[in-house]
Write a protein that binds this DNA or RNA. Structure first.
Lengths: 231, 231
DNA sequence: GTCTATATCTGGATAGAC
DNA sequence: GTCTATCCAGATATAGAC
């Protein structure tokens, strides 16, 4: 179908490279970072985030020592601590920055679409493509939620429910307009979310089977539509 | 449908209480445990496993200190070390014991069923009910895989693929007999697995919405059948 | 801004009394 | 079989030189 969002198009459309994300983080958190030169700060933030995501996603954040992080990032312990004041703060930084950008892109992709069948498809595509581009961030967010402090943890749970609600609302509106048939939208939204998460949680599985993100998207849309479209 | 396996029936059928599991562990690992009296050993293993699962599932295994574990279990550090020789061994113990029992029960529930539509339903029911009864074990296994040593890690990945294959085989055989229509069985098995895992990974969500395991099972079976049954 | 060196503490593990 | 006391490796965090 020509209306479908292609992965290539999506990648050109959104700018979510590690450098973009770190620059945005720096500009939004200048007051908390002791380093004042943008060029230096962004360059090092890229190293730090990359290293932290790599190590954490391999063995877990709390099993990652700051010595390890410092070695992987190519910065001394002292230098690390000019970018954050504690290991826990680093955890929050990664979570918050990832979440912020993901939400902005996702909402941006689906607003102003009127046709609800199209909107559902677009939301699925956008979610999958985004989690493909930002896989380490999504994986990290999912796995390290339990290590957050109480306050931040509540935010993370809110985040999970927020994206789920996007899908539930599309389904509900579609039902009202007769585009979709009557199904339990809460459950449908919940398991759809689970299948979207599957993509970034088990990437190794699909990589080894040669299934790329577009193929997964096609399958998912086929499955969901075969359930929600009127018979 | 009268053929459907009910949760109540299932619970009576299988014996997977914490005590059962600990006794089985003790009997199978006598040589590695310094405590020789069955009664004492089982009583303490129950305390240890319960405490370890509770703390780990709240904050992660590597964030759990053995002092914390000793406090929660009501045993001294010294006593703990008569049941395992290192923290990593404790991790393996929990993983292996959980996996062993789960596999036995799951396979037991589906062998000797000929009708493939029924077999698919039974496998979904059995998986969900089992993960309901053994929720802490399933959650732990999922979340702590990355903390395992290389060898044990390979086993865990094998485990994930093994259960997935059960579903893929049912779907394949069903296709050959014309019970199911032609769909991508690998992908279908993979996302079905994801939706089964959803149940024990996000229990808090469904608990707060008043959705019990039978309702979730009904929904899932409806969704899957509407996709795989011939139109 | 970045590094090295170090203070301070916590965690896993064990020895030996009971 | 269980506990207390302790060892020591390795962790976070910081001070101060450059």
């Amino acid at each position: 179908m020509s209306d479908d969002l292609k992965f290539k198009t999506f990648k050109k459309l959104v700018r979510v490279s590690m450098e973009d994300m770190c620059r945005e983080y720096f500009l939004g958190n200048r007051e908390n970072i002791r380093i004042k030169k943008e060029g230096v700060a962004v360059k090092n933030l890229v190293k730090i985030f990359n290293a932290a995501l790599t190590i954490s996603n391999a063995k877990g954040f709390s099993a990652m020592s700051l010595r390890e992080l410092s070695a992987e990032a190519g910065l001394s312990m002292g230098a690390l601590y000019t970018y954050f004041t504690s290991k826990d703060e680093l955890l929050d930084m990664i979570q918050r920055q990832g979440w912020m950008i993901a939400m902005r892109v996702l909402l941006d992709q689906i607003t102003e679409i009127e046709d609800l069948r199209l909107k559902l498809k677009r939301a699925i595509h956008a979610h999958l493509y985004l989690s493909e581009v930002m896989q380490p961030w999504f994986y990290f967010s999912y796995m390290e939620t339990k290590n957050l402090a109480k306050e931040e943890r509540r935010n993370a749970i809110e985040a999970e429910l927020f994206t789920e609600r996007i899908f539930v609302e599309i389904l509900t509106q579609g039902q009202e307009k007769g585009v979709f048939r009557a199904v339990d939208v809460e459950l449908a939204g919940a398991v759809l979310k689970a299948m979207l998460q599957e993509w970034y949680l088990k990437r190794w599985k699909y990589a080894s089977r040669g299934i790329n993100v577009e193929k997964y998207a096609d399958f998912l849309i086929d499955l969901v539509e075969s359930y929600v479209l009127p018979r």
